[in-house]
Design a protein around this nucleic acid. Sequence first.
RNA 1: GCAGCAGUAGCUCAGUUGGUUAGAGCACUAGUUUGUGGAACUAGGGGUCGGUGGUUCGAGUCCACCCUGCUGUACCA
Length: 444
Amino acid sequence: MTKEKTNKPSKDLPLGFVDRSEKELLVRDFITSKIKEVMVKYGFKYLETPSFEYTDSIGKFLPDKDRPDEGVFSFQDENKWLSLRYDLTAPLARYVAKNYLEIPKPFKRYQLGTVWRNEKPGPGRFREFLQFDADFVGTKSLQADAELCVMISEIIEKCGLSKSEYIIKISSRKITDSIFKKINLENPEQKLTTLRALDKIDRLGWDGVKQLLGEGRKDKSGDFTKGANLSSNNIETIEKELKKKIPETEDLKEILRIFEDYNFKNFEFDPSVIRGLEYYTGPIFEVNLKFDVKNDKGQVIQFGSVGGGGRYDNLVSNFGNYDAPATGISIGLDRLVYALLQKKEFKIKQAKPVVICVFDKSLIKEYIKIQNVLRSADLSVEIYPGDGKLKKQMEYANKIKSPAVILYGEDELKSGKLTLRDLNSGNEKSITISDLVNEIKKII
RNA sequence: GCAGCAGUAGCUCAGUUGGUUAGAGCACUAGUUUGUGGAACUAGGGGUCGGUGGUUCGAGUCCACCCUGCUGUACCA
């Protein structure tokens, strides 16, 4: 190996960016194919928007900041700030505002695309990842919200998870709104801290959350987080309200009725679901896995949800005069892949090429002829990309998990037959080129 | 950002209270087999022990600072 010298380029990747293996990509392709099937069934339109948007179009405003890179990756082009999109919802709102008069109302679209976040990465969380997003724009009907939950369940199950392995959690921003009214909480900073604390019930449990609602909490590394400083009375009220098993807000009651009509049962009312604090205005949902996810060291990690969404009735109107209530849901595909890979054995067939060994460069014409015969039959095949010793070529074929090699040298030239070696069994056959396709099909 | 832990060969790791030329397994290269892979055997290459400075006769080992990674926590529009 060559020594690392100061001027050599680094082979490290930027923080939070990863190379993705064929194994992951095949699972991801499988998932996206299932998503597309379901989206067609549910009548959503396929859309793609660019990776970059003007920074202010995606909800980031930067009046006097030098670098608007908190949370997003940005650069300045011709005096305008551009940012890589951090989700697919904001670009959708921009798209709807821009094309409002042409598109059908309501507008149903789905999108698959890479998004980037300039944040600290965590287990199964990267700074570049693939997201799936489906939305209804231009309808207040809660039928839309309910259908998103049903639809996302169908996708998850098509990906191979059973009903006992995931659950859709639903809640509504209206619940926390009414609690704040009840305890007369108006200080916006306290409200925010409170919401953030409540969002953590899953991870920290009520004990931890109550510390965060009060003075604060020390995590297991010893780090201290300041709390919301609510009175113990108010904390008790919040706990009592949120422990109610049955939703009292109208929107959730209605959604539950619709779920019944769909005969949809794999959901759970969970008022601790808070999610994206800024733009949600009504029902919110989250897709949670019910099994432990481990890292490659075998430790169980805090994995969080694989997807979620909710109603955002004001996002489109931010762009102009059009009022377009909307609701949507997204899945982090790479996280889903990460989780699926440890839950299930995926046997995704990917043909490996039969290798034609290069005995003699002067026979290359013959090799190409053989290759053409196989490729015409849509078989995967390659001439060994080099001209080393036969042993090397065999090792190569073995390494790439080739099903078979074809040997054609002096002996074969004389006999007019070629040798086909099955790399699994080690058996060799001498056959004519007209039998080749059939013989290979028997092997693979 | 804050906190805890870690960094020794391509990978996984060992390295005794500080003591000569720093080790193992796997992987790699060559050979045993110049027309045959997976197994075995033999030989070989590969490391400024994350970096810089310090303590010491002597540092992979001790100290300080920095860098990187993992985990938790915060933030995540």
